[in-house]
C-alpha cells in the first residue's frame, strides 16, 4: 500500500529527519509492501489541519505538535506546563506518566499514538540581560496561547501576540523584547540578527507526536502492524538520544554567532519555580482527575 504522512516542520528539524527514517524502516521491514511518503513542512496538509486529516482518514498518518491539541483536552497540556519537567530525564518520565491518558484521548478521536520526539528545552530570548525578573518588568513578551500568556503575566511582562513569521521584524522594531522558544527555532530563524541575550531557563520540553488513523491501522495484516510498532519504538528511542545532541549543538551555534548565552541566576530560577508551581496548580484545576493521575505518576 501507498500511505501519506504529512509533517509540520522542515527537513532540517530533528522530528522530520526521524520521520524519514521511520518511513524507511517500515518500507524495509515490509519489503516495500507499505510505502509511506513523508510530506514535510506542511506541504501536503497545513499543521493545524493535520489532526483532522488523520482523524477522518484523509491521510493515514501524520505528525503534530502536541501543544496545539491543548484545547481538546487538558491532558495534552502536560507538554507545555512551565518548570514541571526541565531536563530530558524528567521530560521522559513525564511522558511515560502522561502517555496512557494521551493514548486514551487520541483513541477517542480515532487515532493511535505511535511515537513522540522531544524538542530542546524552551528558553528565554531577550533584548536585555536578565538576572532577576525585575529586569523584565514592563517588557513585552511574545505569547501564543493561554498558557504562554499566563506565564508572561506571572513574569511581570505584557503578553503580546505575534505570529511566527513576524517575529524577526517584531524584535527589530521593538514590538516585543522577549520570547520563550527552543534553541532550534532560534537557530532556524537566525535569532542573532534581532535579539542578543539567551538565558537557558529550560522552561519546558515540548514534543511532536506521530499518530496513525485507527481504522487504517486495523486494516493492515499483523506483520505490517508489528513492523510499524517496532519502527515507532526505534524512532522514539532515537529521538530521545538525538535531542540532547541537538540541544547542545544549537546552543553552540547561538554562541558562535555572538549571542550572549548564560545560565539563569539562582534567584531567577527560584522566581521561575514559584511561577511553575502556580501554573501546575491551575492546570490541575482544569481536570483534577486526569491531570491528578498524571502528576501522581510523575512525582512518584
Amino acid at each position: 500500500a501507498k500511505w501519506h504522512m504529512p509533517t509540520p516542520y522542515g527537513d532540517g528539524n530533528l522530528p522530520t529527519q526521524i520521520a524519514y527514517g521511520f518511513a524507511e524502516e517500515i518500507k524495509d521491514k515490509t519489503s516495500g509492501d507499505l510505502d509511506i511518503t513523508v510530506h514535510s513542512a506542511g506541504s501536503l496538509v497545513k499543521h493545524t489541519e493535520i489532526p483532522r486529516a488523520v482523524k477522518t482518514g484523509q491521510v493515514q498518518m501524520g505528525e503534530v505538535f502536541l501543544g496545539i491539541l491543548g484545547n481538546e483536552h487538558p491532558v495534552f497540556k502536560h507538554d507545555n506546563i512551565p518548570f514541571l519537567a526541565t531536563s530530558f530525564e524528567d521530560a521522559k518520565k513525564l511522558w511515560e506518566a502522561a502517555k496512557p491518558q494521551v493514548e486514551q484521548q487520541l483513541d477517542k478521536s480515532g487515532m493511535k499514538l505511535l511515537y513522540a520526539v522531544a524538542w530542546p528545552a524552551q528558553s528565554l530570548y531577550t533584548k536585555m540581560p536578565v538576572n532577576t525578573l525585575s529586569d523584565l518588568a514592563g517588557a513585552k513578551m511574545r505569547a501564543y496561547s493561554p498558557s504562554t500568556s499566563r506565564l508572561a503575566d506571572l513574569m511581570g511582562t505584557t503578553p503580546t501576540t505575534i505570529q511566527v513569521p513576524d517575529i524577526p521584524q517584531a524584535f527589530s522594531t521593538g514590538i516585543i523584547q522577549a520570547m520563550i522558544t527552543s534553541p532550534s527555532t532560534g537557530v532556524d530563524s537566525q535569532a542573532w540578527d534581532y535579539v542578543s541575550y539567551y538565558t537557558d531557563v529550560k522552561a519546558w520540553i515540548p514534543k511532536n507526536v506521530v499518530v496513525v488513523n485507527k481504522r487504517a491501522f486495523r486494516r493492515l495484516d499483523k506483520n505490517t502492524q508489528n513492523a510499524i510498532l517496532e519502527a515507532a519504538k526505534h524512532a522514539e528511542a532515537l529521538g530521545w538520544e538525538k535531542v540532547a545532541e541537538r540541544a547542545a549543538s544549537d546552543k553552540a551555534k547561538l554562541i558562535d554567532n555572538g549571542m550572549k548565552v548564560s545560565d539563569p541566576s539562582p534567584e531567577l530560577l527560584n522566581q521561575l519555580q514559584a511561577i511553575g508551581a502556580t501554573m501546575i496548580e491551575e492546570w490541575k484545576a482544569e481536570a483534577p482527575k486526569e491531570v491528578g493521575e498524571i502528576l501522581t505518576r510523575y512525582q512518584n
Binding site: 513542512a41 511566527v164 513569521p165 524577526p168 521584524q169 532556524d188 530563524s189 537566525q190 540578527d193 534581532y194
Partner: peptide, 16 residues
C-alpha cells in the same frame, strides 16, 4: 520570502 525563509531556514530579516 517569509514562506521561503521558514522552509529553507534562512533569516527572514536578511532575505528582506
Amino acid at each position: 520570502l517569509i514562506v521561503y525563509g521558514v522552509a529553507a531556514e534562512v533569516s527572514i530579516a536578511r532575505l528582506f
